[in-house]
Design a protein around this nucleic acid. Structure first.
Length: 350
DNA sequence: TAAACGTGGCG
DNA sequence: TCGCCAAGTTT
């Protein structure tokens, strides 16, 4: 069989996707490696997230916190607000923990081995391999969704994920070269993202087309197989949007753990089949005609919105009033921002 | 091992 | 409207 990794690297030399945190193959060949901090930041943001969604967030974070020491010294609330809208907020909490661990335990210098990286918060097998390979050119094997799909097709593996992950990982490891491992890691993911796509893969222009068992068998488009998922249930909730006469909004910081953990949100009921009303203070609460709808990974959410105006003396049972000047709606996670968008029509400035 | 954990784009 | 999918990690 031909040298698959060499074929892929040749393809990557002319087809590498451009990303702000990436060093082009020509420059890497000249010995230039990217800033490990920027690579780590990008890899955490890219977990289950598209490159298009990450670009602006990565630029913003690198501008506001240019080094890991800057990030480690940041206020938690500022980091959570900057992450708002990107999703999977545990990543932001772990991002801060990791930055502080790098400063405290590694003198602000990212460790350069898979084993050490794996110990850090928010860094799992994929991210440890990605940072080790991309930032330090270590021959580690990255296995993300792209690589799983590419391997399943290259070897025509029909066993369903996630059960087949170990076998796909083993196949990927066999292919990982000792030369240019950082470029190879990015190349195999780029291949999955641009050619070996989930739907209608472009097998005709694939650098591995002559080696791909699934293309030859005609099964590429139906791989990888996955075990079927349960369908998503619907939960209901009630949120309370209060505005004081001086323009302040009643908000609360959600608990550190769980859904939207550590993020700003509107006080309200638990979310379930039949939520119990829980107004944060007694008032003439008005129900909005339209409810806010949002879909999370594992359930649909429908929020009934109650609004009220109140005076300066109000002492809420939960949350605290945030002045007009301090409240930035972009600091809200999307579900809560949808509520704001609907409620602000009624509670807008007079 | 399985479930929890966001969001936006696409067919 | 709906399910699938995106450079996964944690519990």
């Amino acid at each position: 069989m031909r040298d698959l990794s060499a074929e892929l690297l040749a393809w990557y030399d002319t087809h590498a996707r451009e990303m702000p945190w990436r060093v082009a193959p020509a420059d890497r060949k000249a010995g230039v490696l990217p800033d490990p901090y920027a690579v780590w930041m990008s890899e955490v943001m890219l977990q289950q997230t598209t490159v298009a969604a990450v670009r602006d967030y990565h630029r913003k974070f690198m501008t506001v916190w240019p080094t890991v020491r800057d990030l480690a010294a940041a206020d938690d609330a500022d980091v959570m607000a900057a992450w708002a809208g990107l999703g999977y907020y545990a990543r932001a909490r772990n991002l801060l923990k990791c930055a502080r661990a790098v400063v405290a335990d590694y003198d602000g210098v990212f460790p350069d081995t898979y084993a050490e990286l794996l110990k850090l918060p928010g860094i799992g097998p994929y991210t440890a391999a990605a940072v080790a390979a991309i930032a330090f050119d270590r021959p580690e094997t990255v296995v993300d969704g792209n690589v799983e799909r590419v391997m399943a097709r290259l070897y025509d593996i029909h066993a369903p994920l996630p059960g087949s992950k170990a076998e796909l990982t083993a196949r990927a490891a066999e292919l990982t070269p000792q030369t240019r491992p950082g470029d190879y890691a990015q190349a195999v993911m780029d291949l999955g993202a641009t050619i070996c796509t989930p739907r209608s893969p472009a097998c005709g222009i694939c650098p591995w087309r002559d080696d791909c068992a699934a293309r030859i068998a005609g099964t590429a488009a139906e791989l990888p197989k996955k075990t079927p998922k349960k369908k998503t249930p619907t939960r209901f909730g009630i949120v309370y949007v209060a505005r004081r006469t001086d323009g302040a909004w009643l908000l609360e910081t959600r608990p550190e753990t769980g859904l939207l953990g550590g993020m700003l949100g509107w006080p309200g009921s638990e979310w379930g089949d039949n939520p119990e009303p829980q107004p944060p203070f007694a008032a003439d609460w008005r129900e909005l005609t339209e409810e806010a709808r949002h879909t999370f990974t594992h359930f649909h959410l429908r929020l009934k919105i109650m609004v009220a105006r109140t005076g300066p003396a109000t002492q809420p049972l939960r949350g605290e009033f945030l002045s007009q000047a301090k409240f930035n709606p972009t600091a809200l996670p999307t579900a809560m921002r949808k509520v704001f968008d609907l409620a602000s029509v009624t509670l807008r400035d007079d």
